[in-house]
Write a protein that binds this DNA or RNA. Structure first.
Length: 251
DNA sequence: CGTGTTTGACCCGCGC
DNA sequence: GCGCGGGTCAAACACG
């Protein structure tokens, strides 16, 4: 009987902890959103201030813009995006599948430029170049060339590493950084930080809460998973570190 | 074994 | 014509 009471108390305590974590999560999410919007504005100002798309800029000069139109018939789109560090290096996740076909170190930039072809559909002519920004390694310049002959793959969760059940549809679109030209396909650059955690965890938690009478063990496990995934998630750590650093810099 | 990445070689355009 | 630099190819390699 005692063990039953202490078990119930334990569950209650864990639920309280879960609520606190949820609130904290929401707060952090809001803070990061605000900071990200400040950051995007500043980045845009900095980049414009440095005439990124004027005379001496490497990208502009290499891509050969005439007036507002690229030389070739294919559409060329420049996108600045926050890079995501993965085992293969810098990546820009935009919902399409890309096959890397080359890499080159260019003269003006120590960061290698990677060349990708769209592999979401056979015969898709779209190419993408991705190169780290000189001033800020966490920002990459992605140059899209061509127009996709297909829609964004429906299985975006696979392509983006995001899960369908997370609320990415809004966050995801808002994750776009500065887009200097009209995109032919609205590339969705994922700066998304999944503070709601992987869907399996978060949905399990809410579901379990509804059924918590017979799922106490699962609940305990999920809370532990929740905390563990928060502390282990490198993007969470990076986002927190970045947010804290920016706050300090702004002061 | 299939698929994707790496990386050196090659091609091509441009400036001198 | 030559050299330079960006873009692409393709064989070798890695990985699941």
């Amino acid at each position: 009987m005692d063990s039953h009471i202490s078990h119930a108390q334990k569950v209650e305590a864990l639920e309280g902890q879960l609520d606190r974590l949820r609130k904290e999560n929401e707060k952090l999410k809001m803070m990061i959103e605000v900071m990200r919007s400040h950051c995007s504005t500043l980045e845009a100002q900095i980049l414009r201030g440095k005439n990124y798309f004027n005379d001496h800029d490497q990208y502009c000069s290499k891509v050969k813009w005439i007036g507002n139109a690229p030389v070739r018939n294919t559409k060329v789109t420049h996108v600045f995006a926050r890079a995501q560090f993965e085992k293969n290096g810098l990546v820009v996740k935009d919902g399409f599948q890309w096959r890397k076909y080359g890499q080159k170190v260019t003269k003006d930039n120590p960061y290698p430029r990677a060349y990708y072809k769209c592999s979401s559909a056979p015969g898709c002519p779209v190419k993408k170049k991705v190169q780290g920004c000189l001033e800020d390694r966490s920002i990459v310049m992605a140059t899209y060339e061509g127009v996709h002959n297909h829609d964004v793959p429906t299985n975006t969760s696979t392509a983006t590493g995001l899960d369908k059940t997370t609320s990415y549809s809004t966050d995801y679109d808002q994750g776009l950084s500065t887009n200097f030209n009209t995109s032919p396909f609205k590339p969705n650059i994922s700066t998304h930080l999944d503070l709601t955690l992987s869907a399996s965890t978060s949905t399990d938690i809410s579901t379990d809460k509804a059924n918590n009478n017979n799922n106490n063990n699962n609940n305990n496990n999920n809370i532990e998973e929740y905390i563990a995934s928060l502390t282990k998630d490198p993007s969470f750590k990076a986002a927190i570190a970045s947010a804290v650093a920016r706050t300090i810099v702004r002061q």
